[in-house]
């Protein structure tokens, strides 16, 4: 089996948004919406401070809440684990947008829903997603979780700490955050260590 996943090392990320803009150019994401965005948060008081720079995007959940709510079957999970949208079947009903607890989906002006698809067109050619390729801090890794030698498996294995967003929801995301700068884990999250 192939189980595609991404890991972002927050110890390296500086929140520069190169990933977000590379995504925008690569996927012709229109102005006004984003598949990938950055959340910067400060924790602590002067001079004992921590800043978390956290890119967010579709988490390609193992149990994606967006998929079962789709009335037309346009939201589906590929064999490699990418949560995908068949835009030809999309009627723009927005049920999936409402169902996603991470706000990862948006409506396009053309009337169908869009989101991060791990740059499936690149993945299908054996290339890395645009965000992974461009990142000047090399904080992103991508690959097959079922392959212990894939970059993402190695990064997760070697991380001092591994978190996912809102683990309590049972969505089982395939987007992992490594080495959170705050000792307690992700900011604004209850935390959850693999």
């Amino acid at each position: 089996m192939t189980r595609l996943a991404m890991a972002i090392d927050l110890a390296s990320c500086v929140g520069c948004a190169a990933c977000s803009i590379a995504c925008k150019m690569e996927n012709e994401v229109p102005l006004g919406v984003n598949r990938l965005w950055i959340r910067n948060t400060t924790v602590g008081t002067f001079p004992n401070l921590t800043v978390e720079h956290r890119p967010e995007q579709c988490l390609h959940c193992e149990n994606p809440p967006c998929v079962p709510v789709c009335p037309t079957g346009c939201c589906f999970v590929r064999d490699d684990g990418i949560v995908d949208i068949d835009v030809k079947k999309c009627i723009g009903c927005s049920a999936c947008i409402a169902a996603c607890p991470y706000d990862a989906r948006h409506m396009l002006p053309q009337g169908y829903v869009s989101k991060c698809d791990f740059c499936k067109h690149r993945v299908d050619e054996g290339r890395m997603p645009a965000c992974v390729e461009t990142c000047p801090t090399l904080c992103r890794t991508f690959g097959d979780l079922d392959d212990p030698n894939s970059p993402v498996s190695i990064a997760i294995r070697e991380a001092r700490r591994v978190d996912v967003l809102r683990p309590g929801l049972g969505t089982e995301p395939n987007l992992y955050y490594l080495n959170t700068p705050a000792a307690f884990g992700l900011v604004g999250e209850t935390g959850g260590t693999l």
Partner: peptide, 23 residues
Amino acid sequence: VRKVDGYESNPKSRGMLCPRGQG
């Protein structure tokens, strides 16, 4: 021009690019 990317053999991009270069 739809996209610009760094390229491996260039010592000042090594295949990567910053947000300004991308956008």
